[in-house]
Design a binder for these strands. Sequence first.
DNA 1: GAGTGGTCTAGACCACGGG
DNA 2: CCGTGGTCTAGACCACTCC
Lengths: 253, 253
Amino acid sequence: MGTTQLDTVPEPKYWHLRTVLSEALDSEFSVGEILPNERDLAARFGVARATLRQALEQLELEGRLQRRRGVGTTVAPPRMGVAVGSEQHAWPGATGDAWQPVDCTVAVPPTAVADILETAPEEQVHTVRRSRMTHGQPVAAELLYVPVSSVPDLSAIDAPSGAARARAVLRELQRLDLEGQDSAVELGSARADDAKELDRLPGAPVLVVTTRFYAGGRTAAASIATYRADTCRLTFGDTGGVEIHHDPERRAS
Amino acid sequence: MGTTQLDTVPEPKYWHLRTVLSEALDSEFSVGEILPNERDLAARFGVARATLRQALEQLELEGRLQRRRGVGTTVAPPRMGVAVGSEQHAWPGATGDAWQPVDCTVAVPPTAVADILETAPEEQVHTVRRSRMTHGQPVAAELLYVPVSSVPDLSAIDAPSGAARARAVLRELQRLDLEGQDSAVELGSARADDAKELDRLPGAPVLVVTTRFYAGGRTAAASIATYRADTCRLTFGDTGGVEIHHDPERRAS
DNA sequence: GAGTGGTCTAGACCACGGG
DNA sequence: CCGTGGTCTAGACCACTCC
């Protein structure tokens, strides 16, 4: 028969709800508009609040909605394209990059970081904390690890820590000859400190970008940056952005 | 005082549970081992099953666990590095790429795709479906869009659709001179068809990679690939992989 | 204080996989 | 068939924001 798919395999309520709400968002709501509260919505659709919330979580994960405790649920703007890789490689801190140094300490890094840097487990590294803002919103938090041996001329600097120290480390990095870099992207969940900086709750989905910077035939620095997964689309390549519609769902024929 | 943080801001139970389980996974379990079932675990920790499930969902999102209905919950292996960008750009279908053509149709694409391709809304495009396997597991499903005008010499081919047609389209692509490409990565949720191909449930988190291929001064093809977010770490750059530990959580000092 | 989303409970039933 | 994880319910209370 030419009828629509028989529900021999009925889809879950929350999935169907997600679809219905998604279409409603397209046709009946505009960016920034606030939705009815969860209790009302659940009643309107005749489901438990938990079920409705499952649908809302999906839509939030897809960047369609934004929910804030004490405030409400609003229609999210399209994800912003955020450039994280470029053809012309550049050191972190190069003039014009979007990051803002926050702090800097010197310590022995976690073993996972030492593995990335390929340093001895006890070697000290500068740990630079930076944050990235776009359109007034925090979009990423980064920890940049620079082995002390990568920036040997830094010893005479007076600032022992803080943003000034961070800038000094970044400045020293510029003097090295960057030979290459590579990155990896994976899904993670925000730790408490990152969550706070990103204005999200702990456990919020983030895209973790791990980047190694090569100079002098070795790994001279490494960066671990966590981007808000709900608001960011990470772009790699020549142009710095693929213009697409807001909905990663409506992408097939 | 030097005591640990007072719980003036008590963390949620599920978040604490997540931490406890995460540490247990590190110390007391090995890859592939099956955990006790959810009802037992919930009872053991003195929480409701829903709360325990919230913790397990977090760990699954982070790639630490794998859950399968009717089977159980197992400890997941470290995420596999999957190369999605390379310095030496290459057309999809170049010898040695990891994709396997599945099918091919010709149709007018959704408007979102037409926007990416910068084609007229009514222009026909070849839609090549491909899948990518690694270590015997499906890791990605792709839709590759090639405007018919990009491969004009294809008209004489007999196969109207199917894998043979897909290979023919890919072969024609190789004849063009690839001038560049760029990609974007964002979080999405698997549609029903992708979910099936990826052996996951609908709504499972995926990393959506949108790539544009440039040739002849225009966008000659576009690819929308959905990768399993639980099992994949997408790598960009020269080497094709940053060797890191399995835990995106244990990444700070 | 009123209203919002976030957490948590204690159940029930369903869909799936394997013996 | 049984045991597993997946879905769903109808409540309760908490944390937060704004007025």
